[in-house]
Design a protein around this nucleic acid. Structure first.
Length: 287
DNA sequence: TCACAGGCTTCTG
DNA sequence: CAGAAGCCTGTG
């Protein structure tokens, strides 16, 4: 296990932020809880109490993977300080969801996830992603956390479904995607599974990783089923181009209501996507 | 950086 | 019935 302090991070908020659909509550607790995350062929469980975090992995695995995944080297404090103090909507959004970050997730997984997201809602997206993993992901074991009778934290073995490789999805054919609640999106996913598998697919994904935002966005929208909005989500969540600013139906409503002259993208040039996440989370979860 | 309409899955309120 | 982290295709 590895214990560390992290500010500006809230796992419960991240799980509801609409950027990752594979984080869930493993055990409820008085303060926060134990959350599980599966990413990049690895599994971890994390207990949060305020800014104190206990990871089920050891320090080397944290430093070698989860530190990057949780984007710990971005200064979110500086981002928050840079926001216009007069901007009441953004200030309220940051006060409400200040623990939201831009995770560094797997590119192929983000392509599939945000193809599923189109004309869809978060619970349904989650169901489809889970079903996809259950069908194609070959079960693996990871290390989780559990409280013993005395309330002490212990590690415990857990099984989980990793996100399937593109090759596995491609091999299943279009019919392999039936019954997952994908609807008309199934053909988009299967086409991209073909595109991303094999040596050519690996090269294309590597080229995408090497490209700047504008180029990557163009490469993505050239593909079947990927429009402007999905491409921006893949750029933001799969390539960490935080200048990408996905405009979906909710963000459109926010802009129409609170930024009639348009969102001040120039003021936040280079990282507007982070602010988009604060606004998106606030709009969807504030009641 | 042309605008717009219609269709596409499926579930919730 | 409308709406949900939309996109594709065809038309004028």
């Amino acid at each position: 296990m590895y214990k560390t302090e992290i500010k500006n991070m809230d796992l419960g908020q991240l799980a509801k932020s609409g950027q990752c659909f594979r984080m869930r509550l493993a055990a409820e607790m008085e303060h926060g809880g134990i959350w599980s995350a599966a990413a990049g062929g690895r599994y971890v469980e994390v207990m949060q109490d305020g800014s104190h975090f206990l990871f089920s992995c050891e320090e080397d695995e944290f430093e070698g993977g989860w530190r990057t995944y949780f984007d710990m080297d971005t200064d979110y404090e500086a981002v928050k300080r840079s926001v216009d103090p007069e901007d009441e909507y953004l200030q309220a959004a940051m006060a409400f969801g200040g623990g939201v970050r831009i995770l560094r997730q797997d590119l192929w997984e983000m392509i599939v996830t945000f193809l599923i997201s189109q004309n869809n809602n978060i619970p349904r997206i989650r169901n489809s992603v889970d079903a996809l993993c259950a069908r194609f992901g070959e079960k693996k074991t990871g290390i989780g956390l559990v409280l013993d009778l005395e309330g002490c934290v212990k590690t415990v073995e857990k099984t989980y479904d990793p996100f399937p490789e593109a090759g596995a999805v491609a091999a299943g054919g279009l019919e392999g995607l039936a019954g997952l609640g994908l609807g008309y999106r199934d053909k988009y996913i299967w086409t991209m599974a073909e595109k991303c598998s094999g040596p050519d697919g690996t090269k294309w994904l590597d080229d995408l990783r090497a490209a700047d935002y504008h180029t990557a966005h163009g490469m993505l929208t050239a593909e079947f089923g990927i429009g402007r909005k999905v491409a921006d989500c893949v750029c933001l969540f799969g390539l960490h181009h935080v200048e990408a600013f996905p405009v979906d139906t909710h963000v459109k409503q926010i802009v129409n209501t609170y930024y009639p002259g348009g969102f001040p993208l120039e003021r936040y040039r280079g990282y507007a996507g982070i602010l988009q996440q604060y606004m998106f989370y606030y709009k969807l979860n504030d009641k």
